[in-house]
Design a protein around this nucleic acid. Sequence first.
DNA 1: GGGTTGCATGCTTGG
DNA 2: CAAGCATGCAACCCT
Length: 870
Amino acid sequence: MGSDICVNALCVHDWKKGWPLRSGGFAQLCINCGSAYEMSVFCNNFHRQKMGWMECKFCNKPIHCGCIVSRSLFEYLDFDGIGCVSCVASQLRMMRNTENPNGSISSTKNNASDQHSALIDGTLSVDSVGEGKLMQLCRIVEASEPSRWNNSRRDSIISCSGQNNHEVKRSFREADTRFSNVFKPPVQSLVFSKFENSRSTWEIKNTHESTAQPSLNMYLGNPSGNNTIPPPSSGEIVDARPEGKASPPFHQGQRSRPILPKPLKIGMSMNPETDKGTISHARIARPPADGRGKSQLLPRYWPRITDQELKRLSGDLKSNVVPLFEKILSASDAGRIGRLVLPKACAEAYFPPISNSDGLPLRVQDVKGNEWTFQFRFWPNNNSRMYVLEGVTPCIQAMQLCAGDTVTFNRIDPGGKLVVGFRKASNSIDTQDASPSSLSNGISMKGTTNSGGTENLPLDSSYADLLQSIKGNGESHINGHPEHLHFGAGAVGFLTTENCEKTNKQSPQQPIPFSEKKRTHNIGPKSKRLRIDNEDAMELRLTWEEAQHLLRPPPSVQPSIVTIEDQVIEEYEEPPVFGKRTIFCACSSGGKEQWAQCDDCSKWRRLPVDALLPPKWTCFENGWDGSRSSCSVPEEMSSRELENLLKPSKDFKRRRTLENGKSIKEHEPSGLDALAIAAVLGENLTDPAESSAGATTKHPRHRPGCSCIVCIQPPSGKGRHKPTCTCNVCMTVKRRFKTLMLRKKKRQSEREADAAKEDNNHPRDESEADGASKSKDDTSHLENEGGRGQPEAGESSAGQIDLNSHPSRDDTQMDITGLSMSINHLEITNHQAKEYMTQNGLKSFNSEVHADQHSLLLTQSNGQGQNNLS
DNA sequence: GGGTTGCATGCTTGG
DNA sequence: CAAGCATGCAACCCT
C-alpha cells in the first residue's frame, strides 16, 4: 500500500500492490477507483502505466481493465491475477463439486480466521463461538444461492445453531429481504487477486463459491467485504483478523468489519411486501460499494436505491453507477457556512486519504453536469477527525437542497468519477421500512436529534424517476457522453425544483425530519438565503423595472378612493394585473392617449387611455381602431412624432444610457441629491413619460428614491406651506436653491470668462452672427452632461417660479435671450421661490409639471427646440 | 459589521 | 463509555 497519484481520476488515491505481471512489474490497484496500473521499476523509480488490458489467469483471455474498475472482489485477491467470468465460474463449480459434492459447505476450520462453522449434508453446524458469524454466513450463502436455500433447509440450519436461534431466524428473514434484490451487474469479468493479508485458498474459494458461482449476482448489493455485506470470505468467516477496539490507524490496509445492521429487534415487523417479492421496488439501504472501508459504515449512510432503479441506471446509461453513501443534510450542512460534515467512515472509505488538515480539492459533479470543487478536509476532533466538505453551498443551492434532503455520493465506473446526487425529502411514505437501516435503527432512532433521527425521513424520489426525468428532459443533463452522465444515486433533482419551503408546505403530515428541539431553528433563514450574483441582481432589477411598467390596475374593478393626509390613494381589492407596456402622452387636444407597440410589426398604435393590453399584443387585436387593426397599415405617427413619443420613455433612456456606457443608477439618484444633481446637470426631473403616464395629482409612481416634492414631504406635510414655514421640505428647498444658484453663478462666471476669451480671439460680427448657434452648443453641451435640454423657462408666464426649473434650463433661456447671469439673479430666484411657495404652495407642483411638458411639446412642435434635443 | 475559519462542546449512538 | 457528529462560538479576515 502506498500513496500516489491516481492518473485516472480524482486525486490522490491509495494504491496497493497487485499481482505480478509477466512484464516483471506488478499490477497496481487504485483503492479508490479501482483502476489498474502496471508498475515497473526503472532506476529505482516507479513508472506507471495504465493497464488497458489484462489477462485472465486461466485462459489468458484479455480483459479490459475497465471491467475491473470497482469490481468489489478484486480487493480480496491479488498476486494471483484476474479471471474472466467464465473461467471463474467454471473454477468455482469445480471447487464446489470437489469440496461439497452434496451441495453442502464443507466443514472447515480456518486456522487463520479461527472460524468454526460446518455444514454437513445441508446442515450447518456451528459452535457457540461462530454463531454470530453464522448468521452472516447464512445471509451470504442464501444471498448467493437463494434457490438452494429453501425454508426447510434454512430452518434446519437454524435448528442447529443452538441458542439465540430466534435471532438467526430473523437474520434469515432479513437476509431474505435484503438479498432478494441483489442486483446483477452487467459485468463481463471479474477481477481476482489474492488476499492482501494472506488469506487462504479456502477463503478465496469460498469467496468464489458464494459469490461468483451461482450467477455472480452480488455486486453492489454484495460489495467488497471490507466494509459491506461481505461475501463469506470477507465477512466473519474469512477475514478473521482480530479487530481491535481501538480505532485503526488512519487509512490502514483492508479491514473487514461487519457492517450489517443489528438483527431485527423484537417487535419489528417486516414490510409485508418484502415477502411478496416486490422488494425490488422498495428503497433499500444498500450496503455501499467497495471502498477502502476502514471503518464500519453505519446503515444510515448506506445508499438507498431500489434494485430496479440501479439496474436501469446502470443498464440504460451504459455506465456503472456505484452508490457509495448518502447523507441526510443537517441544518449545518445545508446552511450558509458551506460545510458538509462527512461521515468519518465514508470519508475514509471513499475519499482520497488526506494527511494534513488542509485537505485537498475534490472535484465532484452533480446530476446536472456541473462540476464542483469541494475542499475535502478534516479537523482534529477528540483525538479523531471530523471530515468536512467545504464549499458545498453553491452546489447545494444549485440543487435547491435544504436540511432534511439527502445528498448521495456515487461513483461512475469506469473512470471513478465522483458524482453527487440528491434526493429531496418528500411527503410520500417511505418504502424503506424493510431496509436494513430501518430494521436496525428504525425504533431506536426515531425521534432522536441526531442524524439517526432522520432515518425515517420519507424519501420518495427514485432512480427511476431520475431516469425518467432525464429522458423526459432531453439531453441537457447528459451531454451525450457517458462520462457526463452524472446521475447521482438517488439523484432526482429534476423533479424537485420546488424549494424546501414548498415541500414542507405540501407535506404537513410529513414527519418532521429533525426534532423540534434542535433542528427547526437555524434551518430556514440560512438555507433559504440564496446568493444572487450581480448579474442576477441586475436581471432582477431590470425585471422589476419592467414590471413597474407592466402593472395595471385590475380591469373592471373600481377602486375605492381613500384620502390620507390630503393624498388621494386608489385602493383596489384585486391585485394589479400584468399588461403590455404602453406609453401615455398628452395629445394635442389636451387629453391623454395611450400608445402601444405591436409585438409583430413593432408599429405603434393609438389606444384609449383606459385600454388594458395583454402582455402579448398585436395589431390584429386592435379593436379600438379598425383601420389600424392590421400590421400592414402604416403607423399613424410620423417618424418624428414617434421619436418624440419614445424619447422620454424608459426604454429610450435606458438604451441611451447603455449606449453611453453609463449605469442606470447614475440616472436615478435619490432624494434631494437627485434634485440637486438633476438641476445642476440639467436632467429633467419630470420625466414626460411618467408625467404623462401618471398625469394626475395622485402621483401614482412613487418609488423608493423618488425625489419629487411630494415624496420628500414629511408625513405630516400639508399641501400648502406658509412663507414662514420652516419644515424640512421648505428649508431644504431654500437651501438647495441657494446652493444651486451659487453653483450656477460660478459656472456662469466661468462661461462668461470663456466667452470673453473667445471674443478676443474672434471677430465680433462672427460672434454675433453665431449667437444663436452658440447658445445651441451650450445647450447641447448641457445635454451631453446628462440632461435633455428643456426650452421651458423656469419662470412661468404667471411670474411664478417652477420648482422643477433648474439652472440648465435657466441657462438655455438666458443664453437664448442673450442675457447674462447677474449676481442679483440668486436673490430674484430666491424671492420667486419664496413667493411661489407662499402663493401656491407645493401642491401645484404637478400642474407645473404639466406646464413643463406641454411647453416641451409646444416647443418641439414649433421646431424651436429642435437643436436642444439630442 | 458580516463572513469565514478553526476548534470546542455536548448530544446521540453503538459497541 | 467512546466515537461520531451537529452545532456553537470565538478569533480572524474582509469589505
